[in-house]
Design a protein around this nucleic acid. Structure first.
Lengths: 253, 253
DNA sequence: TCATATATAATCAAAATAAATCAAATTCAA
DNA sequence: TTGAATTTGATTTATTTTGATTATATATGA
């Protein structure tokens, strides 16, 4: 194995496990402690992980959650602009469904000014955010707590979504591809998202350009199931054109 | 666990619980008092928490809130004792249902030490309390947010409860009367509580003496539907006797 | 208020971890 | 093939972390 290859693998390993000790890495990669430390130092200098005494932590690590990860939202500005634009699709008396995710969370933070709105969500992060906004009727889908995305998933969430019909769903996704459609790393999340699309008259996708031409594990829906796609201007022209041709209203902000 | 990782986790723990004592932290993280103090000092210097004699407080105003309001809880000591006693009915591998309410909330605060437990609740206050306790499988019933009791009610919550079967339900109530049984001021709450009783093999009622011989608007269930009633020693003897005669195991703490 | 219990800070030694150094092994380029 | 550059692991030295100990400070209740 090449040195550089090993460094990539170490990074992968740490991202997958959230953390790793030097000793652990020496036995996994069959190299000396000195080498592991050199690798970790390199990776830290590249800003790809966080070195600690005894090993290293991934940036997405749970231990970092409150302090670091919040500040490290990728493409935060694009997401803010997308969320701000999405607000235009929300009107008084609407019943809307908010998916879990960073962009939809930012949208949630902005809707507290609106009145007579019914908000249904499977994100307990959003629930907490809107808990005190008394002008809203707030509904939780229920379900099993999935901590990594702060969402509620599983049969309970799906059953609830079968019971309701909403005007609009604001959907997030991890990956968007012309052929694969919307995909996400977790099967349970995918199921819930699918149920959300079923429950909504209009599907509004909030997805920044960094997720374009990516595919993940579990299929949510096809692009043709989306009515409106709000993204940022970095989105490649050809993708925008093709999605547009497929009948989706594409909004660039 | 790395030192830095532990410090982040301590911060999480304190934010989650609003406060923590040094002794508490030593037993949770299995390190000496000296280490805990050093960690707290570091975190204080970073401006992430507020150090006090004996422990530390979270900064977040939301976390301060419950601490203060907790002090205004009526019969707080009795409720604490009742919650502590109720813990004896919870075992590993159990699936339990926690009703919303102050006493059940205090019970929730105590179960973070237990492992391999599945907790279902209609209280989003409890959900938030247990959100970070990774040893628990945590399930929300979903439903419409009812802010005054920080609970989820309505058909969604009821439907979810129809879908599940649990070992034990820990039920709170606003009023207890020999003839009227358990009653509560809100019809939706009553419906959900009724569904909870249906879903549970064993019904454990947590109700301090101040609620005895009171009736409220909406009927939940009869006293005979209760299996165990944990209350404080101020409970009138005659009531205890009669409830006991009705086949309920009455525990005085 | 004072006595008592409890909590903290300071100090130190042991253990764990990291950094520095250097020589051997490997790769690369002419 | 040769020699320079790079990579690696062993060794030594330095640093960090930790818990025990003890003296000091702070809270609490009679």
């Amino acid at each position: 194995m090449f040195a550089e290859e090993r460094r990539r693998r170490i990074l992968n390993y740490i991202n997958e496990h959230s953390r790793a000790s030097v000793t652990e890495l020496t036995s996994v990669f069959h190299v000396s402690e000195a080498t592991v430390r050199r690798d970790l130092k390199e990776l830290e200098e590249e800003g790809l992980l966080h070195r600690t005494h005894g090993g290293a932590l991934a940036f997405q690590s749970v231990s970092f959650e409150p302090t670091f990860s919040e500040k490290r939202v990728h493409h935060a500005e694009e997401k803010q602009r997308i969320a701000a634009k999405a607000l235009e699709w929300i009107h008084e008396e609407d019943t809307i469904l908010l998916d879990s995710g960073t962009t939809t969370y930012q949208l949630a933070q902005r809707i507290s000014s609106l009145r007579s709105l019914t908000v249904v969500t499977n994100s307990y992060q959003i629930l907490r955010e809107l808990e005190h906004t008394e002008s809203l009727e707030l509904v939780s889908t229920g379900g099993v707590v999935r901590r990594s995305t702060q969402s509620l998933v599983g049969p309970i969430a799906e059953k609830t979504l079968e019971m309701i019909k909403v005007d609009k769903v604001f959907l997030g996704t991890n990956a968007l591809d012309l052929e694969a459609g919307l995909t996400t790393p977790n099967l349970y999340e995918a199921q819930v998202k699918k149920a959300m699309v079923q429950a909504a008259s209009q599907v509004i996708l909030l997805c920044d350009s960094s997720k374009i031409n990516q595919t993940s594990f579990a299929k949510v829906v096809s692009l043709s199931d989306v009515d409106v796609w709000i993204t940022d201007e970095e989105a490649p022209d050809d993708v925008v054109q093709q999605v547009s041709d497929a009948g989706v209203e594409v909004i660039l902000v």
